[in-house]
Amino acid sequence: MTVSQSEFRAALLDADRAVPEGLQNPHAGPAGARFSVYRNNVVVSLTEALATAFPLVRKLIGTQTFGQLAGHYVRENPPASPLMMYYGETFPEFLSGFAPLSHIGYLADCARLDLAFRRSYHAADAASLDPAVLQTVPETLMAIRLAPAPSTIVIRSRWPLFDLWRFNNVTDAPKPRAAAQDVLVTRPEFDPAPHLLPHGAALWFDALARGSSLGEAHAETLRKTPDFDLAATLTLSLTTEAFAAPE
C-alpha cells in the first residue's frame, strides 16, 4: 500500500479526510492519532508564525479569535516558500474578505502595518542620508532626488491607523480619532518604528520613490493636497532616517 505525498498532504490539511491506509502503528494497525501529530504540527506552527507576524491584529481581536481565524487562513493559504519570516503576505486581503470580522473595517490595514514592520525589519541595510546634503540654496535643493531607504515603508489608510497602533502599544495613549491617517515606517538601525505622516506626505514619498526631484514631488503633491507641509515632512523624514545616502 503506497502513500503518495499528495495523499499525505490532502489528509494533513483536512481533518475530515481519512488517514491514508498505508500509514500504520507498530502493530500494522491504523495510524490514527499518530497522524494527528503531523496535522497538529502543521496547523499549530503556521498559526504561531502568523501570531508572531501580526501582533496588532492579535491584540485587536484577542488570542482566541486570532487562533480560529488563523486556522482558516493557514489551511486555505499554506506558505508558498520556506521563508516563514514572510508568511502572511496575503493575510490583509484574507481579512478584508472574512465575513465574521467585517464589522472591524480597519483590521486589514492593521495587518498591512504589521506586515510593514516585518518587511522593514528584514530589509537591506543602507546608510542614511546626511541631512547636511539639504543645507543648500532652494534652487539646488529642489533639484535633488532622494531615495527612500529599503526599510522605509508608507501605508495609506482611510482609518486612524497610527492612533490604532499607538493605543494598542503605548501606555496611556489617547483613543483613536475619527480620521484617515497615513503611516511612515522607518528603521534607523534595527528596530522599525511607525510615525504619523502629515497630510499629503504619502503622495510626496510616492513621487520621490518614482524618481521625482524634490521640486517635482513638491509640485505634484501640492496639486492634490494644497495644505501639504513640506518643511514638517522633511524634518520628520530626516529625524527618522527615512532616506538612504546616495550610492
Partner: peptide
C-alpha cells in the same frame, strides 16, 4: 524528511517510506 509539496511549504518535517 519532506516539507514542500508542489508550490506549498507545510512547515513541518514530514516522513517518507
Amino acid at each position: 524528511a519532506w516539507s514542500t509539496h508542489g508550490a506549498e511549504f507545510l512547515n513541518d518535517l514530514l516522513p517518507l517510506p
